[in-house]
Deep mutational scan, measured.
Amino acid sequence: MDETGKELVLALYDYQEKSPREVTMKKGDILTLLNSTNKDWWKVEVKITVNGKTYERQGFVPAAYVKKL
């Protein structure tokens, strides 16, 4: 869990989004888990830094590609 009590997951593999509802992740990324009720796709939040500014983006990743921490 992070400092706000949200559950975290670890990306076990790289994943490139294939639709606007998904998010890209790299092996080793730590993501915030938002919803894991679907056994195949989990909703996560990723933080992306571009030119020194951090953005948060929500989307789905394959559940088999992440592990709860």
Rank of each mutant, 00 (worst) to 15 (best):
M1N: 13
M1G: 15
M1L: 13
M1H: 15
M1V: 15
M1C: 14
M1S: 14
D2A: 09
D2K: 06
D2V: 10
D2C: 14
D2R: 05
E3M: 08
E3Q: 10
E3L: 07
T4I: 14
T4A: 14
T4W: 11
T4L: 13
T4P: 13
T4D: 13
G5T: 15
K6H: 14
K6V: 14
E7V: 15
E7L: 09
E7Y: 10
E7H: 13
E7A: 09
E7W: 11
E7G: 10
E7P: 09
L8A: 06
L8F: 15
L8Q: 10
L8P: 05
L8C: 10
V9P: 00
V9L: 11
V9N: 00
V9E: 00
L10Q: 11
L10H: 04
L10F: 08
L10A: 04
A11Q: 01
A11G: 03
A11L: 02
A11V: 09
L12T: 04
L12C: 07
L12H: 02
L12F: 03
L12R: 04
L12K: 05
L12S: 02
L12E: 03
L12D: 02
L12G: 01
Y13L: 09
Y13N: 09
Y13E: 10
D14G: 05
Y15S: 01
Y15N: 01
Y15C: 02
Y15Q: 00
Y15I: 01
Q16M: 13
Q16F: 14
Q16T: 15
Q16P: 06
Q16K: 14
E17W: 05
E17M: 11
E17V: 05
E17L: 06
E17N: 06
E17T: 07
E17I: 05
K18F: 05
K18H: 08
K18W: 04
S19I: 04
S19T: 11
S19W: 05
S19M: 07
P20Q: 09
P20Y: 09
P20V: 10
P20G: 09
P20T: 10
P20K: 10
P20H: 10
P20F: 07
R21Q: 13
R21T: 12
R21F: 13
E22T: 06
E22L: 04
E22H: 05
V23C: 07
V23G: 02
V23R: 01
V23S: 01
V23E: 00
V23L: 11
V23A: 05
V23Y: 02
V23I: 15
T24P: 07
T24N: 05
M25D: 00
M25I: 15
M25Y: 01
M25K: 00
M25W: 01
M25Q: 01
K26D: 03
K26L: 07
K26W: 10
K26G: 05
K26M: 08
K26C: 09
K27F: 05
K27T: 06
K27G: 05
K27D: 02
K27C: 07
G28N: 06
G28E: 02
G28T: 01
G28A: 02
G28Q: 02
D29S: 06
D29G: 03
D29R: 02
D29H: 04
I30Q: 04
I30P: 01
I30W: 05
I30H: 04
I30F: 04
I30A: 02
I30K: 05
I30V: 13
I30M: 07
I30T: 05
L31G: 07
L31W: 02
L31N: 02
L31S: 02
L31Q: 01
T32R: 15
T32S: 09
T32V: 15
T32Y: 10
L33R: 01
L33P: 00
L34S: 02
L34P: 00
N35C: 09
N35K: 06
N35E: 15
N35Q: 10
N35V: 07
N35S: 13
N35G: 06
S36F: 06
S36G: 11
S36Y: 07
S36E: 15
S36I: 05
T37N: 13
T37P: 03
T37Q: 14
T37S: 13
T37V: 09
N38K: 06
N38C: 08
N38D: 15
K39W: 07
K39F: 08
K39A: 12
K39R: 11
D40W: 15
D40C: 10
D40L: 12
D40F: 14
D40Q: 13
D40E: 12
D40A: 10
W41M: 05
W41A: 02
W41T: 02
W41L: 03
W41I: 03
W42K: 00
W42E: 00
W42Q: 00
W42I: 04
W42S: 03
W42D: 00
W42A: 04
W42V: 06
K43P: 01
K43D: 04
K43W: 14
V44I: 06
E45C: 10
E45P: 00
E45S: 15
E45K: 10
E45R: 09
E45G: 13
E45W: 05
E45Y: 06
V46F: 06
V46M: 10
V46I: 15
V46A: 10
V46P: 02
V46R: 14
V46S: 12
V46Q: 15
V46N: 11
K47I: 13
K47W: 13
K47L: 13
I48E: 08
I48G: 06
I48Y: 12
T49Y: 11
T49N: 11
V50Y: 10
V50H: 09
N51Y: 07
N51V: 06
N51I: 06
N51D: 15
N51L: 11
G52A: 06
G52C: 09
K53N: 14
K53H: 15
K53R: 11
K53A: 13
T54G: 08
T54H: 12
T54S: 13
Y55G: 11
Y55N: 08
Y55F: 14
Y55P: 03
Y55L: 14
Y55H: 09
E56C: 13
E56D: 13
E56L: 15
E56R: 14
E56K: 15
R57P: 01
R57S: 06
R57V: 07
R57Q: 08
R57L: 06
Q58W: 07
Q58R: 10
Q58N: 08
Q58D: 07
Q58V: 11
G59Q: 01
G59L: 04
G59T: 01
G59Y: 02
G59I: 03
G59E: 01
F60I: 06
F60Y: 15
F60H: 04
F60D: 04
V61K: 00
V61Q: 00
V61H: 00
V61S: 00
V61T: 01
P62F: 02
P62L: 03
P62R: 02
A63K: 06
A63G: 05
A63V: 05
A63Y: 02
A63N: 02
A64D: 11
A64R: 14
A64P: 08
A64G: 11
Y65P: 00
Y65D: 04
Y65W: 05
Y65H: 06
Y65T: 07
Y65A: 12
Y65R: 06
V66H: 00
V66T: 04
V66E: 00
K67P: 01
K67R: 15
K67T: 15
K67A: 11
K67D: 07
K68L: 15
K68P: 09
K68V: 12
K68S: 08
K68D: 04
K68I: 15
K68H: 07
L69E: 03
L69Q: 05
L69M: 09
L69A: 05
L69D: 03
L69T: 06
